[in-house]
């Protein structure tokens, strides 16, 4: 009991502990620079932009825990965006929208299943496979919608943009649901398998863990989350653009790593990456409100991200070399 609150204990027992500190620091800095940050309107407008990245990061986090990586998420986001923008259209009906939301989710699951099949069943390298399928999906999106345009009805986009149940941003509720679902999943047998496969697939296999199925499933989950992100980003922008997902892939991986998960798999969670994604987005706001010289912006942002990524390592190094 004595060691309950030591740094090492917290860091190993609660993977979300360090991301929480980073998130708290970034919120406070942002708040100091932008006093109206917590106005309902400002909070909502921030969160609606952050949510797509949060969703993709959740999927990416599951993949990383399971010992893989998914570079095709941006492509899936783009496909979903172009499907909604071309099939629903600017003056489509609400019913049509929900029908294609369903189609989008199925497309996401299918795209994830293709990744999963290649990686789990054909035993291909995750990084190469999803790199290749990212072009497949991105190319398909460009085929569906060569030039930006189309869109969804403004009235439906407004649902996403301005709904604030209980005076809180819609995103808060979505994130809460995801965290609850994750809490449940991680307590099930599947959750244990997931960590086992990510940690040491061979050992898991020998103890009768269905390694192939678990590996397959993580990409399906990632595909699903990318589809949800695609729906969210379409409702945010109200329009279609085949390039819309291209920036999100690398950001999602960064968010997951800031969130305390590791490329080596088997550790971490989803809560940390959610906070990592929000932190990453807030960093951009901080840069914006700190009145940094335009020509320095990119450099400063990159520096902050590198520090955030390296911080746990640096702290451990200092502690080890200390007395």
């Amino acid at each position: 009991m004595k060691n309950r609150f030591t740094w090492d204990f917290l860091m190993t027992r609660y993977p979300a502990f360090f991301p929480l500190i980073l998130l708290a620091i970034s919120i406070i800095v942002n708040w100091i620079l932008q006093p109206n940050m917590f106005d309902r309107e400002t909070l909502n407008s921030n969160m609606r932009v952050f949510l797509p990245l949060v969703l993709v990061a959740v999927g990416q986090a599951v993949v990383l825990i399971g010992g893989g990586i998914d570079i095709s998420v941006g492509g899936i986001v783009s496909i979903v965006n172009t499907i909604l923008a071309t099939r629903v259209g600017l003056d489509g009906s609400t019913e049509l929208m929900w029908r294609y939301v369903l189609v989008s989710i199925l497309v996401g699951l299918l795209a994830g299943a293709i990744n999963g099949f290649f990686i789990a069943h054909l035993r291909l390298q995750p990084i190469i496979t999803t790199y290749a399928t990212s072009f497949l999906y991105g190319g398909l999106a460009l085929f569906i919608l060569p030039n930006p345009g189309g869109g969804i009805p403004a009235s439906i986009a407004e649902i996403y943009r301005t709904t604030t149940p209980l005076k809180l941003p819609l995103s808060f509720f979505i994130i809460a649901i995801i965290l609850l679902v994750w809490k449940y999943i991680s307590s099930t047998r599947y959750g244990k398998y997931l960590f086992a496969v990510g940690g040491k697939a061979d050992a898991a296999y020998e103890t009768a863990v269905p390694v192939t199925s678990v590996q397959f499933s993580i990409y399906v989950i990632s595909g699903l989350m990318a589809a949800l992100a695609g729906i969210a980003i379409t409702m945010l922008s109200g329009s279609g653009n085949a390039e819309i997902g291209s920036a999100i892939t690398l950001n999602s991986i960064t968010a997951v790593i800031i969130g305390g998960n590791s490329f080596s798999g088997g550790i971490g969670g989803v809560t940390g990456p959610v906070m990592g994604a929000i932190t990453l987005s807030i960093i951009q706001n901080i840069i914006s409100f700190a009145h940094i010289n335009t020509w320095w912006e990119t450099l400063v942002k990159a520096t902050i991200i590198v520090i955030a990524l390296a911080a746990p390592g640096i702290i451990n190094l200092l502690r080890r070399s200390g007395p």
């Binding site: 345009g149 922008s237 109200g238 329009s239 653009n241």
Partner: peptide, 8 residues
């Protein structure tokens, strides 16, 4: 950077 995405 986009023809319609910023409209709203």
């Amino acid at each position: 950077g986009d023809v319609q995405g910023l409209n709203a």
